[in-house]
Design a protein around this nucleic acid. Structure first.
Length: 964
DNA sequence: GGTAGTCCCATTTTT
DNA sequence: TGGGACTACC
């Protein structure tokens, strides 16, 4: 596909390579295109090499996409860019730290070094477990903090606070704070009292002044919640305001002890982590920052001539400073859109972009306080707005803009958020947008009803053909006509349903199942709450300790009644087949093998099973979980509701269902924003579980305090913090930005739904909701039954039996056929082939892999590696053959199956013919309109051999004879 | 316009 | 358990 021509501001950005730039890149304005073009331009117009250009993104996916786009636009190929610094903040800093930072902890007064083998923890559960362990030792070792610790219901909640402080750049040393980084703990007194001036000024009523907002907020002041010496209601109230003296007393209370406590926890946790050879992401970035501050030689070796940071609205203060340190010249370019900042709960700071200039000056001053670190000039910043939107129709853009000023509560006051900002301008010509809101007591049915209303409806026309490039000289009218030409009625795949919470999506999915509407959920799944996880947990418990709890689950699944189960458990007379299976499992060495055997036995080949095995076996780089640890791990994750991303089956024409967060960066022809219900969206935040809070205006504060001042020792609410907090107005800016993000995903049409209790956002839309009696129709599309679930042990003949294709092959022929090169050789080759087909940056490491690479290079259609295949056989009892196709190559007029074999000869070819025949029949049913070809590719000789498939009946007979 | 009492609900997710 | 929005009442 040819690249479009940049618009004026994109062109300006591409060519402006020297100096500091802040790019306001609104939704759908071709940001990635412009950045990668700019990258290419730097390479072309200067003598810089990829190593001189640092390109930082927020996610791994984004980094990968950038890399791929750059390959398209430069002479460099993926391999040459492999080592180039196009990376996430975390990955880049971790690499630097491991390369140069072994002794960095010394700078903070810590003896432990950072070894190469240090573990970077990504799973919140593990992080939390380790922190819990730390806190219990901390409590033991510090009796002097007993009172402080009494205010905690769960001391592990301090963990979040530490992460927040690290994101601020607050870093402890043994005796104090790194480079006076504790300043934010004090708070911003001036800013707070500006807030107070606003919130505490009386209103003007008809008959004189009315109570200020702050006074209203502390109206119900109840001194009995607080320690006995706290101010009374009368002292706090100074109608119509809050007593200024009391506010100051609260703000200026002595917080020395609190600060010391937090310092010690933070510092000792850092020590604990290093001693136990791990780091969290937050601590890792903090140490990388310390290294960059303290070791000029690291910057000399590794800082960059050009630095670009993408998604700058999702960075925190620490990352801003790290970016400054990674640049050696002022060729710095940050790209982002404050309106899409929705990760505040991850301690990001939208002010990095909204107050970019101020922060740039301030952070530079701070970094240069003791010696010059930022030697380049920072006083001139050029702002380039990208406002031409290539995604949505103009009515959608105009409609989305209002979302930023819809109040989230009945009393919220919003200043014009877009003051002075240029609106996005649509670039398409046909505006056929349908924008409507719907409401019904049963929102799930309503959603299905609306989906069915939209599908195949010409009023909701969307682009249905690939866009032919318009004649460059075409008139507007001609372009409009060409665009109209491309429009047609939508199908399921054109629709996305967004929700604020995952819970809503999950509930909706159960209703979806009842009606059979094709809806695919895209996002994290509570993996440890699936039947697969519970099954795995049960057998692990049985194998580990013959646990009653495990047996109960297994027996229940096998169909035993409650009473039978009780009897069996009491007598320990477990069914023979199960006992045998237990012994078989006990003999398996590896956790991965153990789990696979369990899932095989139950015929569980779902994505959940795969994900579980992957997850549990890849937790540690250098060691594996024992069974006991695996049990604990699953339990902890089940408890914590951990979610894991599962790959959804692509290709099906289905509605996409995801959370708004998950939809960021994506676009859909038709968006249905669901869940606009009271308290769901906008979501009214839950109070922080940790009694110690940090706030930019207030600094470090405690919300509870232990005191023995009253009749008996007691944990009280801490009045100063409560007073200050209630004076601060609550803000819902991020909820509005979420609304904005959701709406700007839509290209053509936008629908809203709510249940019987619509939220403020629903009310605030400039359209009225239509009340509807939903009448969704059950869909009776014959859907192939996926993953037959064999619930019983021992085998039952009433359910389809699943056989692996290998079960019906004669393995005596093909065992040891790889020429003594070891089974790993084949596995590695397959891994390589999969990665290569997916265009991942891998290089062939031997002749066989080179042969595969050449083969794949010659394929010009769609490549689908590692595709699961299921073939139901006709005979009785029912049997389904299952296997995985190495590679499917699909073009418009043909489909090719490719299976790699590392055998030195073709002795096993007949067996492979059987195997590929299975795949052949599966694909023949999926693509009835295209000829199918099945090829065994012998990698050692780079020879493709096409097979002549055997019939389904022959496969059926074979499977029954070989597996009676 | 102000207040007290009632009610409802307890995220989002990347590294 | 806690907090905030909202309602019903003064």
């Amino acid at each position: 596909m040819s690249e479009p021509t940049p618009n004026d501001n994109q062109q300006r950005l591409i060519e402006s390579t020297e100096g500091i730039y802040r790019v306001d890149a609104g939704a759908g304005t071709g940001k990635t295109f412009a950045i990668t073009r700019r990258y290419a331009h730097i390479l072309e117009s200067t003598d810089a090499t990829p190593d001189d250009i640092l390109l930082v993104t927020f996610t791994r996916n984004a980094a990968r996409e950038m890399r791929e786009r750059i390959v398209q636009q430069t002479d460099y190929d993926l391999r040459e860019l492999q080592g180039a610094p196009i990376s996430t903040f975390h990955a880049y800093c971790f690499r630097l730290l491991r390369r140069y930072g072994h002794t960095v902890p010394e700078t903070l007064g810590i003896d432990d070094q950072i070894p190469d083998s240090i573990d970077l923890i990504e799973e919140p559960v593990r992080e939390k477990q380790l922190f819990q362990r730390f806190m219990s030792t901390f409590a033991d070792e510090h009796p002097e903090y007993a009172d402080m610790l009494r205010m905690f219901r769960d001391p592990a909640t301090l963990h979040t606070l530490i992460g927040e402080l690290a994101a601020k750049g607050v870093i402890p040393t043994r005796d104090g704070w790194f480079r006076s980084s504790d300043a934010p703990l004090e708070g911003d007194r001036e800013a707070f009292f500006e807030t107070v001036a606003d919130a505490n000024s009386p209103g003007e009523g008809a008959s004189g002044p009315t109570n200020s907002d702050a006074r209203a907020a502390v109206g119900g002041w109840d001194a009995s919640e607080y320690a006995p010496d706290s101010p009374s209601k009368a002292e706090v109230h100074d109608d119509p305001q809050v007593d200024r003296g009391v506010i100051e007393r609260a703000y200026d209370e002595d917080r020395t002890a609190l600060r010391t406590f937090v310092h010690d926890v933070y510092y000792e946790y850092l020590t604990f982590a290093l001693r136990n050879n791990y780091l969290t992401q937050g601590l890792m970035l903090a140490l990388a920052f310390v290294m960059l501050c303290d070791r000029p030689q690291v910057r000399e070796q590794d800082a960059h001539e050009y630095v670009m940071v993408d998604e700058f609205q999702d960075t925190n203060e620490l990352q801003f400073k790290i970016a400054l340190l990674l640049a050696i010249t002022n060729n710095l370019c940050v790209v982002g859109d404050w309106k899409q900042s929705i990760y505040g709960f991850q301690h990001t700071s939208v002010e990095n972009i909204t107050a970019f200039d101020d922060r740039l000056q301030r952070f530079t001053r701070e970094l240069n306080a003791d010696r010059t670190r930022i030697a380049y000039p920072v006083d001139s910043v050029t702002t380039i707005p990208l406002y031409e939107n290539y995604r949505s129709s103009s009515s959608i853009l105009a409609f989305a803009e209002q979302s930023l000023s819809i109040p989230a509560t009945y009393s919220e006051d919003i200043d014009d958020p877009l003051a002075g900002e240029r609106s996005l301008a649509a670039t398409n010509h046909v505006d056929n947008a349908q924008i409507d809101a719907y409401q019904a007591p049963n929102e799930h049915e309503l959603l299905l009803d609306r989906i069915q209303m939209v599908v195949d409806n010409d009023d909701y026309a969307v682009e249905v053909t690939d866009e032919p490039q318009p004649d460059p000289g075409a008139t507007t009218a001609q372009q409009e006509a060409a665009e109209r030409e491309r429009l047609g009625a939508p199908s399921y795949g054109d629709i996305a349903v967004f929700t604020r919470t995952r819970a809503f999506a999950r509930e909706f999915l159960t209703v979806v199942d009842e009606y059979g509407v094709p809806v695919a959920y895209d996002g994290g799944v509570e993996l440890f709450d699936t039947p697969e996880a519970k099954l795995a947990l049960a057998w692990l418990r049985i194998a580990e300790s013959n646990a009653r709890r495990g047996w109960a689950v297994v027996l229940e699944r096998a169909g035993y009644s409650f009473d039978d189960t009780e009897t069996i458990l009491d007598t320990e007379a477990y069914p023979d087949a199960m006992v045998q299976f237990r012994e078989e499992l006990a003999a398996i060495d590896t956790l991965g093998g153990f789990l696979r055997r369990v899932f095989d036995r139950y015929g569980r080949t779902s994505a959940y099973a795969d994900a579980l095995v992957d997850h549990l076996t890849s937790l540690y780089e250098n060691s594996t979980l024992t069974r006991g640890e695996a049990i604990q791990y699953i339990e902890a994750n089940l408890d914590a509701g951990t979610t894991v991303d599962i790959e959804t089956s692509p290709g099906e024409d289905a509605v996409t269902l995801q959370t708004i967060h998950g939809a960021k960066g994506l676009e859909y022809p038709i968006v249905i924003l669901a869940n606009l219900n009271d308290r769901a969206f906008p979501h009214y935040g839950q109070p922080p579980a940790c009694p110690i809070i940090y706030d930019d205006e207030l600094g470090l504060r405690q919300t509870r305090a232990y005191s023995e001042a009253g009749d008996y020792p007691h944990v009280y609410q801490h009045w100063p913090t409560k007073l200050l907090q209630s004076i601060q107005p609550s803000t819902y800016d991020e909820e509005r930005r979420l609304l904005y993000v959701a709406m700007t995903r839509a290209k053509r049409h936008l629908l809203f739904t709510s249940g019987d209790d619509p939220s403020r956002f629903m009310d605030g839309l400039s359209i009225d909701a239509i009340e509807l009696e939903p009448t969704p129709e059950p869909v009776t599309v014959a859907r192939e039954s996926t993953a037959p679930f064999v619930t019983t042990i021992p085998d039952s003949s009433t359910v389809p039996r699943r056989l692996s294709v290998h079960d019906i092959m004669d393995d005596s022929v093909y065992d040891e056929r790889n020429g003594g090169r070891g089974t790993d050789f084949g596995t590695e080759l397959h891994d390589f082939a999969e990665a290569y087909a997916l265009d991942e940056p891998v290089e062939p490491s031997n002749d066989d892999e080179r042969a595969v690479a050449t083969l794949i290079d010659d394929l010009d259609g769609k490549l689908i590696p590692e595709e699961p295949a299921l073939l139901p056989l006709p005979g009785e009892p029912q049997v389904t053959l299952a296997g995985i196709i190495d590679l499917v190559h699909v073009t418009d007029d043909s489909v090719e199956i490719i299976d790699y074999k590392t055998d030195p000869d073709r002795l096993a070819h007949d067996e492979y013919r059987t195997q590929l025949s299975v795949y052949y029949h599966v694909l023949a049913s999926v693509y009835p309109d295209r000829p199918i070809q099945a090829t065994v590719f012998y990698t050692q000789t780079a020879t493709p051999v096409t097979i002549d498939p055997v019939s389904i009946d022959a496969l059926d007979r074979l499977s029954r004879s070989r597996h009676a």
